[in-house]
Simulated scan of single mutants.
Amino acid sequence: MARQATSRWRLWVGALLVVGATAYLMGTAFHGATTYYLSADEALARAAGQRESLAVRVRGRVTPGTLQFDAVQSTLRFVLGPDETGAPEASARAAVAPGPSGAPARGIDVVYRGAPPDNLQEGSPVIVEGRLRAEGRLEATQVLVQCPSRYEADR
């Protein structure tokens, strides 16, 4: 009789551990999938009050004339500006957001160590993930190029 009670107790503990582990894994996977992104101005505003770097996911466009890739050091640099196709009010706020010196910010300086995405171009809409420092530099861990929502034929 005591042996059956012990076996039943172990079965319940094992089942609870499996259910708990499954719930934890689903919760962490769901959290990662639902993480949204900030606009360039929202990210700069959040980082301005921080002493330490801030983990962010930021959406914007590669500012034309700023895209540079150093193949020797495998370092990609560009300025992430507001995405004009996104919310128009966000673009207006980004134009007047104060930079580190108090002057209007031009965008976020992005530094990414690694090979650039194949379809990355100046003016491309991108989502950049990484750590944003208070001075406005984003040390990227991932650069994702967004595909256009529709393709138009050449005329």
Rank of each mutant, 00 (worst) to 15 (best):
V13Q: 01
E52Y: 12
V126F: 09
R61P: 01
A134N: 15
I108W: 00
D109N: 11
A55Q: 12
F78R: 07
E129T: 12
S7W: 14
G130H: 04
P100Q: 10
R150I: 14
G114L: 07
Y24R: 13
T28L: 00
G86Y: 07
S53Q: 15
T6Y: 10
C147I: 05
S101W: 09
E42Y: 09
R8P: 02
E139G: 06
A45F: 04
V72D: 15
V96C: 10
Q146S: 13
F78E: 07
R155F: 10
G107I: 13
G14H: 12
D109R: 14
F69N: 02
D83I: 06
R59W: 01
A153S: 11
A95K: 12
A90G: 03
C147M: 13
G27W: 00
R46A: 15
G99C: 04
A92S: 11
R61F: 08
V18W: 04
A94V: 05
A92E: 09
L144K: 13
P88L: 11
L16F: 11
T6E: 14
V96I: 15
S124Q: 10
D154C: 12
H31N: 08
G32M: 05
G65M: 08
R137D: 03
P148W: 10
V19A: 14
Q146G: 07
L16S: 03
F69D: 05
V18C: 11
R150Y: 08
F30A: 08
T28P: 00
A48Q: 14
E42A: 15
M1L: 08
S7C: 01
T75Y: 02
L44K: 00
Q142W: 00
A43L: 05
G32E: 15
A43H: 00
P117R: 08
D83C: 03
T75C: 00
Y151C: 10
T28C: 00
Q73H: 07
A55K: 13
G65Q: 06
W9A: 09
E122Y: 08
G114D: 02
E52I: 09
T34D: 03
A97N: 11
A33T: 02
L11W: 04
A95D: 11
N119I: 07
M26I: 07
P148C: 03
Y24W: 15
G32T: 03
D109M: 06
M26E: 15
F78P: 03
L138K: 08
A97V: 15
A40K: 00
D118F: 10
G81E: 02
T22Q: 05
L54W: 05
R93T: 05
P100L: 09
Y36T: 15
A47Q: 07
A55H: 12
E52T: 15
N119R: 12
L16M: 07
T141L: 04
P64V: 01
N119W: 09
P117L: 04
W12F: 15
A15D: 01
A29T: 06
R46V: 10
A134R: 14
T63F: 05
G14K: 11
R8S: 11
Q73M: 06
T35M: 09
V62C: 05
A55C: 00
A43M: 00
A33P: 01
V19I: 13
P100N: 02
T28I: 08
T141S: 13
D118Q: 13
L16P: 01
R137Q: 04
D41I: 04
G20L: 12
G49S: 14
G123K: 06
A48D: 11
R106D: 10
D118M: 15
V110N: 01
D41C: 01
G49F: 10
G14I: 10
V58Y: 03
